Measured scan of single mutants.
Amino acid sequence: VPQRAWTVEQLRSEQLPKKDIIKFLQEHGSDSFLAEHKLLGNIKNVAKTANKDHLVTAYNHLFETKRFK
């Protein structure tokens, strides 16, 4: 089981690129989880459509539901 890579403050910070969060989610989330949160596909394309709040919610949801690969 992966550990949380970032704190809530870090997740919301401008310093953390959306692409980093997407990469983490794609590496650790199950396909059904990723599909549900519309996070499947090319990281660049996902970054265009997903806002930061959406990614933070998905990140927290992944750990709450433990839907890891």
Rank of each mutant, 00 (worst) to 15 (best):
V1M: 09
V1Q: 10
V1D: 09
V1P: 10
V1G: 07
V1N: 08
V1A: 10
V1R: 05
P2D: 04
P2K: 04
P2V: 07
P2T: 05
P2R: 04
Q3R: 08
Q3G: 06
Q3E: 15
Q3V: 10
Q3C: 15
Q3N: 10
Q3D: 14
R4I: 06
R4L: 06
R4G: 11
A5P: 15
A5S: 13
A5W: 15
W6E: 09
W6H: 14
T7I: 04
T7K: 02
T7D: 15
T7Y: 03
V8N: 15
V8M: 08
V8T: 13
V8Y: 08
V8D: 15
E9W: 02
E9L: 03
E9R: 01
Q10T: 03
Q10I: 04
L11K: 01
L11Q: 02
L11D: 02
L11T: 01
L11A: 02
L11R: 01
L11S: 01
R12C: 15
R12A: 13
R12F: 15
S13P: 02
S13A: 04
S13E: 06
S13L: 02
E14T: 11
E14P: 15
E14L: 08
E14H: 09
E14F: 06
Q15N: 13
Q15V: 08
Q15E: 13
Q15M: 09
Q15Y: 09
Q15P: 03
L16I: 15
L16G: 01
L16P: 13
L16V: 15
L16H: 05
L16M: 06
L16N: 03
L16C: 15
P17Y: 08
P17G: 10
P17V: 08
P17D: 13
K18I: 13
K18Y: 04
K19Q: 15
K19Y: 13
K19E: 15
K19P: 08
K19W: 10
K19R: 10
K19A: 15
K19F: 08
D20V: 12
D20Y: 04
D20T: 13
D20M: 10
D20S: 09
D20N: 08
D20H: 07
D20K: 10
I21F: 02
I21W: 01
I21D: 00
I21N: 00
I21V: 08
I21A: 01
I21K: 00
I21Y: 01
I22Y: 02
I22P: 00
I22L: 09
I22C: 02
K23D: 07
K23H: 08
F24A: 06
F24G: 01
F24C: 06
L25A: 00
L25P: 00
L25K: 00
L25S: 00
L25H: 00
L25G: 00
L25I: 07
L25V: 03
Q26T: 05
Q26D: 01
E27K: 09
E27P: 00
E27Y: 05
E27R: 09
E27C: 10
E27W: 06
E27S: 09
H28M: 09
H28I: 08
H28A: 11
G29V: 01
G29L: 01
G29C: 06
S30W: 03
S30M: 07
S30L: 06
S30N: 11
S30P: 03
D31C: 15
D31I: 14
D31F: 13
D31P: 10
S32D: 11
S32N: 11
S32L: 09
S32H: 09
S32C: 14
S32F: 08
S32E: 09
F33T: 00
F33G: 00
F33Q: 00
F33C: 01
F33Y: 07
F33D: 00
L34V: 04
L34N: 04
L34F: 00
A35H: 13
A35N: 09
A35G: 08
E36Q: 10
E36V: 09
E36K: 07
E36M: 08
E36A: 08
H37T: 05
H37S: 04
H37Y: 13
H37P: 00
H37E: 05
H37R: 09
K38Y: 12
K38S: 12
K38R: 12
K38P: 02
K38F: 12
K38D: 14
K38E: 12
L39K: 00
L39S: 00
L39E: 00
L40T: 09
L40R: 09
L40K: 11
G41C: 06
G41Q: 04
G41K: 05
G41D: 07
G41Y: 04
G41S: 04
G41P: 05
G41V: 02
N42L: 13
N42T: 10
N42P: 14
I43F: 09
I43Q: 07
I43E: 08
I43V: 10
K44F: 14
K44I: 14
K44M: 15
K44P: 12
K44E: 15
N45F: 15
N45W: 14
N45E: 14
N45V: 14
N45Q: 13
N45S: 10
N45D: 15
N45G: 12
V46L: 13
A47R: 14
K48G: 11
K48Y: 11
K48M: 14
K48W: 07
T49H: 10
T49I: 13
T49L: 13
T49N: 07
T49G: 09
A50E: 06
A50F: 05
A50C: 13
A50I: 14
A50D: 03
A50R: 06
A50N: 07
A50H: 07
N51W: 05
N51Q: 09
N51S: 12
N51F: 06
N51D: 13
K52H: 04
K52W: 13
K52C: 09
K52V: 07
D53L: 05
D53W: 05
H54M: 13
H54Q: 12
H54E: 13
H54I: 10
H54K: 10
H54L: 11
L55F: 05
L55C: 05
L55V: 08
L55K: 00
L55H: 00
V56H: 02
V56G: 02
V56W: 02
V56C: 05
T57A: 10
T57N: 10
T57K: 12
T57H: 11
T57P: 03
T57E: 13
A58V: 05
A58F: 04
Y59F: 03
Y59C: 01
Y59I: 03
Y59N: 01
N60E: 15
N60C: 14
N60M: 14
N60V: 15
N60P: 00
H61Y: 08
H61T: 13
H61W: 06
H61M: 14
H61F: 07
H61L: 11
H61E: 12
L62V: 03
L62A: 01
L62E: 01
L62D: 00
F63V: 02
F63C: 02
F63E: 01
F63N: 01
F63H: 03
F63Y: 12
E64L: 08
E64Q: 08
E64M: 07
E64A: 08
T65L: 09
T65Y: 14
T65C: 15
T65E: 12
T65G: 11
T65H: 14
T65I: 04
K66M: 10
K66E: 11
K66W: 07
K66D: 06
K66I: 05
R67E: 08
R67Q: 11
R67P: 04
R67F: 06
R67Y: 05
R67W: 06
F68K: 02
F68S: 03
F68L: 03
F68R: 03
F68M: 03
F68T: 06
K69E: 05
K69W: 06
K69R: 13
K69A: 10
